[in-house]
Design a protein around this nucleic acid. Structure first.
Length: 702
DNA sequence: TTTAGGG
DNA sequence: CCCTAAA
């Protein structure tokens, strides 16, 4: 099984500590949060945070229902909870899982329906679905009970998808089922193989080990852009390679069936961004909040090894962000200038876009054992409603024997958050991830089989009887992960449950207390900005050396990655969990930039520039000496100068951090004195100029 | 957007 | 570093 883990991208906060200063920062952070709360506005991050909070899987006992209210009205409350969580810096390890609310799914469904409707698709069912969704997703979300409805929804989705998808030639692709349940989302690829093999091999295996998942399959991704196939071949939309290669995507919305084969190379596809956006926006009934919730859902994608796969956003801006840290930085920067409200909006939008744009694409073109049979990978997301979803697809081949071989290509696991101290070992990290995954997959989930969108309930039927042995049926075969009914009371869910999902999966997950720890942020997240990016999520490093003014041209971003590297690597090898770049997250909305102490080199550059330009022209100083240091803003330079002046005035014993050569400090004082004087002179002149005028005016008045 | 300062 | 009032 391949799991892709998305990590926060971006700044994950100040790494502070130890020094009083750090403490101060921490305090500040707290204050910020408070302010945010006061704001009473929820943004995507808030939602994310909320979700995260809810999903924290408590090792003991079911998640408390008290705070995790999903309801839209309680947003702020939730936010608080989350914030508390975040503020708890004493946790050593924390594993959080995000649950995707069924609500979200419901939403999506309705969206799809709406869209479809708009598109002239004849969907008589649409109204019905919408209603359901409206109500609470419950029905839409349906679990086992609504399989029928689900089927309908699925069809709708399929159609909608067509608009965005490209049909790749004659590949036979049947509708695939893709369901999501609670946190777990599975993508399953079922494959029928002509050769006679024990069908056990292809079986899906949930559960612990994860040993047997697609990840094991080395060949899944050939690197070629997969073609997207929709059941309905009417519309063709070129897919972007980026998209197709994207390994992570929001769970909720994407329905892309991908088929790849040699001759399909020219047909690559991805859903068109604009289409997608439109798609989402078209849903009038859904409030922003709802959307945000969806956005909040994190996705892990299970994917084959995709070391080279770049995750990017469909959205141009976002994409840029992922690709290039500078861009990202710029985004942030610009964002920062926005007033909070605007900024939040920005964030929301970003996430939103990101979410919608990301497509879940199966990247693994595979060949049948026999050879050239293309493997189909379908992915249908969105099926809201039910539980975890699985996408099942398979290529259809003629089977000569009575065995039906199914291959589940990948499972999608909800996003997991793992926090552990820097000193934690890789082994412990692996363990944590494993535990989290096992908890999700192993606890209380059951598998549902969907055929043609309908749930097959009779466990005693044979495959033959059910029709699963028929090729045409295989196309419509899907699996879903569902919570054990026993555990789920399940009914209404909409917002009442503190956990977004009523039907949640088991909560055996453990939450590990973490000590002051370093969050593996990977990168991923960000605020906004977006996630997913290179697999190697880069983390801003505190230590990155300051670029010397001269070589600053070398983008530090490349050097910024921190040790997280281990994570990706591990992921691939072990769980195949690949952190996806995501921004969102963690509730640290508005993440604080990481602290990057000025190096002596930088200080020297700063001093030199100020000596020449003087204080008060920080913009120029920035351009002159730090033009290539994207992370140093003129405000930063100004602040640094301020502290330098202060540092120069205090005794060496009181200074901390990397010692600045006294020589530089002396220059600082000199320059400071000089420019202060100049400034004073300027003011004097101005006054002198004004005074005569005033006197003149006075005279005139008299 | 920049500056200038307080936090 | 952050946040903002002012410019």
């Amino acid at each position: 099984m391949v799991l892709q883990k998305r990590l926060d991208y971006g700044f994950n906060g100040y790494q502070v500590p130890y020094t009083p200063r750090a403490t101060r920062s921490a305090r500040r952070r707290g204050s910020f949060k408070k302010r945010a709360e006061d704001n009473n506005k929820m943004c995507a991050f808030d939602l994310l945070a909320t979700v995260a909070g809810k999903l924290l899987l408590e090792k003991k006992g079911p998640p408390s229902s008290s705070n995790a209210s999903t309801d839209e009205d309680q947003g702020p409350v939730v936010g608080d909870t989350e914030k508390k969580e975040l503020q708890d810096e004493n946790k050593q390890l924390k594993v959080e899982t995000y649950d995707r609310g069924s609500c979200d799914r419901g939403f999506i469904v309705s969206e799809l329906v709406s869209q479809a409707h708009d598109q002239k698709f004849n969907l008589k069912e649409s109204p019905h679905h919408q209603d359901d969704t409206h109500f609470g997703f419950a029905s839409a979300i349906t679990t086992s009970d609504c399989s029928e409805g689900f089927g309908d929804q699925k069809q709708v989705i399929g159609k909608t998808e067509n608009e965005m998808g490209t049909l790749a030639s004659k590949v036979e692709v049947g509708p695939s089922g893709y369901r999501e349940y609670g946190d777990c989302k599975l993508e399953v690829e079922t494959k029928r193989i002509i050769k006679d093999e024990s069908n056990k091999s292809g079986g899906m295996q949930f559960g612990n080990g994860g040993d047997r998942c697609s990840s094991d399959d080395p060949v899944v991704w050939d690197g070629k852009p997969p073609a997207v196939v929709s059941s309905d071949s009417s519309a063709k939309v070129p897919l972007c390679r980026d998209h197709s290669t994207r390994s992570s995507f929001p769970a909720t919305r994407d329905y892309v069936n991908v088929v790849s084969r040699d001759d399909d190379e020219n047909s690559s596809g991805c859903t068109h961004p604009s289409t997608t956006k439109k798609f989402f926006r078209s849903a009038p009934r859904i409030g922003d909040r709802r959307i945000r919730k969806i956005l909040a859902s994190k996705y892990w994608k299970v994917a084959p090894k995709l070391k080279d796969v770049t995750l990017s956003n469909t959205d141009g801006e976002l994409k840029a962000v992922y690709r290039n840290r500078n861009s990202y930085y710029r985004s942030i920067r610009s964002e920062r200038n926005y007033p909070i409200k605007k900024r939040r909006l920005f964030n929301s939008i970003s996430n939103y876009d990101e979410g919608i744009s990301r497509k879940n694409v199966c990247l693994s073109p595979q060949r049948g054992i026999d050879g050239d049979v293309p493997d189909l990978c379908h992915k249908m997301h969105g099926a809201p409603g039910t539980s975890s979803s699985v996408a099942g697809s398979h290529s259809s081949f003629q089977s000569r024997n009575s065995h039906v071989k199914l291959r589940i290509k990948s499972f999608r696991v909800p996003e997991l958050f793992i926090e552990l101290p820097e000193t934690a070992t890789v082994g412990s990290l692996k363990r944590r991830v494993m535990e989290a995954v096992n908890a999700i997959l192993g606890g209380g989930l059951r598998v549902g089989v969907l055929l043609q969108g309908k749930k097959v309930r009779d466990d005693n039927k044979t495959l033959l009887q059910t029709g699963i042995s028929h090729d045409n049926q295989l196309d419509a075969l899907g699996f879903s992960l569902e919570p054990n009914t026993a555990q789920n009371p399940g009914p209404l869910c909409p917002g009442d449950s503190p956990h977004m999902l009523p039907c949640n999966s088991p909560q055996p997950l453990t939450r590990y207390p973490a000590a002051p720890a370093v969050v593996l942020q990977g990168t991923c997240d960000a605020a906004t900005e977006l996630h997913l990016a290179n697999i190697g999520n880069s983390i801003e490093s505190d230590h990155d050396s300051a670029p010397s003014p001269t070589d600053m041209s070398i983008d530090k971003s490349t050097n910024d990655s921190k040790a997280l590297v281990a994570v990706p690597a591990m992921s691939v090898e072990a769980l195949s969990v690949v952190p996806v770049h995501r921004k969102s997250k963690r509730s640290e909305m508005v993440q604080r930039r990481i602290r990057r102490p000025f190096s002596v080199t930088e200080v020297e550059a700063l001093v030199q520039a100020v000596e020449k330009l003087g204080t008060g022209r920080w913009r120029d100083v920035k351009l002159r000496a730090f033009d290539n240091a994207k992370h140093r803003t003129y405000v930063d330079l100004k602040d640094k100068w301020k502290t330098l002046v202060h540092t120069a005035k205090i005794s060496p014993q009181q200074r901390r951090g990397e010692p600045v050569p006294q020589e530089l400090l002396d220059r600082v004082l000199t320059a400071h004195a000089y420019w202060s004087q100049q400034q004073a002179k300027q003011q004097l002149k101005q006054q002198q100029q004004q005074q005569p005028q005033q006197q003149l005016e006075t005279c005139l008045l008299l």
